[in-house]
Design a protein around this nucleic acid. Structure first.
Lengths: 248, 248
DNA sequence: CGGGTCATTGAGTCAGCTCAAGGCTCGTGG
DNA sequence: CCACGAGCCTTGAGCTGACTCAATGACCCG
């Protein structure tokens, strides 16, 4: 609420013209393991536009694949529509993470990507990127690794969906968000969830009512403290205990 | 049964020393879109060993990542173990498909891969492959696409697990196997499932009892004909009708 | 202040799970 | 050549966790 409003302002200040060498996310984003002048070359092909507002699309399913994207600030959800027109969320992306890699197979995005809050993204035109990758083996390797990471994340989620009940799924989800916040240098103990209860339910294969009930249950047993989208982890070990495994 | 025994013999005959240019799977496997002499170069780095027997491992979770693999004949299942030691199958691989791409992220395989029946695999040592990719943009592109395909397959499965009930999941599964058989030039209408009911259940997040009940239900309503692992699709439209979407 | 969106809480239902028993097939050994 | 055991599959009966339906509450924005 008040806090999240403040955060948005900060995000907007830091956005737009910061290049890769100055970006505070350099250590977790695409450029890891590149030499300084290679980072410069990468930076040269990256396009940065004005921030995207909540609910705006970065790309839509079916559009021609042109670029992959790095998230600089905000949050993104990626989703497909099922045959019968239902939304299925396939992932949430936080700052420093890459999205759009689903578009490569068929030269068209298979997901749509929308901003969950005001977000700035770095667009990486793929044809340029591909060319650069052939010249920079470490960039090629890095991208292979990122795609592989996406695969193992998805497989981890499959495992959670197949084996774990509602509480375990949500605990795993919270731990995943916490870990990814920490990676960005933010708190793993308290944070704002960028997505709605309904988005969480959609992602985890639960109804919104079940998500809500689990949150109150975890709150009442003093494992987490919740206030709308604000989450504070009070008893990390207990949360790990109920989760068993982590998703994404 | 009798048929499947025959098939294994055929597979073994065709295995081992066939190189990429002669392989009947060339049109669906890694080499698509490569020039002839590029296929030769690719072929030079590929290692082919004696066939793998049922239940033998190609690699184990945690082992150092060294190669990706193309399946020439047989069938492979990939799986992880959850914290509490339960198997979670993350995918089945049929001839012409590539597996092992989960190992790139952390330089160690995150899955184990075992043969479901006698199988021959082509091993592609990754360091050589990477080097070749920098010299052959179309190979690099092809591999990006294959990884992207794996991502969209997994996301498709996530969607099926989140949205579909038991019958829908199994119908989608059968349609996926059928389509992939067809891609190999085999029948999409009748085939042998290489995996057990228990493997299907594990993959689709169902118990073995539920899988069995759904199979008999589909059989009794004359949509498919089942005899153990032999499947014949009698009414494709009806099967599509109950599936809604396809998984992997 | 009113209408819309999002979240919470309660009550009843059901799909798929668990537990249990029995059948089929194949390989081994007497 | 048959008997036996081990896997794998099928079928039945009863239970339960998450879903559906419904109502109410909290907050935001015009």
């Amino acid at each position: 609420m008040k806090n999240s409003a403040d955060k948005n302002i900060i995000c907007q200040q830091s956005s737009h013209h910061v290049n890769c060498t100055e970006c505070r996310l350099g250590s977790i984003c695409l450029p890891i393991s590149l030499e300084l002048d290679d980072v410069q070359k990468l930076d040269n092909i990256i396009q940065r536009s004005r921030p995207i507002q909540k609910t705006e699309h970065v790309y839509r399913a079916g559009e021609q694949f042109k670029s992959v994207y790095a998230l600089r600030s905000g949050a993104i959800k990626a989703f497909t529509l099922t045959e019968d027109g239902l939304e299925q969320i396939t992932g949430f992306y936080l700052p420093g993470e890459i999205f759009g890699m689903d578009g490569l197979t068929s030269d068209a995005y298979s997901n749509s990507a929308v901003a969950l809050s005001t977000s700035s993204v770095c667009e990486i035109p793929f044809s340029h990127f591909e060319e650069l990758s052939t010249q920079m083996p470490s960039l090629q390797r890095r991208f292979f690794q990122l795609m592989s990471k996406e695969i193992t994340n998805d497989q981890q989620l499959i495992s959670v969906l197949n084996k774990n009940n509602a509480v375990e799924r949500i605990a795993a989800f919270l731990l995943s968000i916490a870990a990814r916040n920490e990676k960005q240098g933010l708190s793993a103990r308290e944070f704002h969830l960028p997505m709605s209860r309904s988005d969480i339910g959609n992602f985890l294969g639960l109804t919104i009512e079940t998500v809500s009930r689990v949150f109150t249950r975890l709150h009442k047993s003093n494992i987490i403290k919740t206030d709308k989208k604000y989450i504070e982890i009070l008893d990390l070990d207990a949360l790990k205990g109920v989760s068993i495994s982590t998703c994404q």
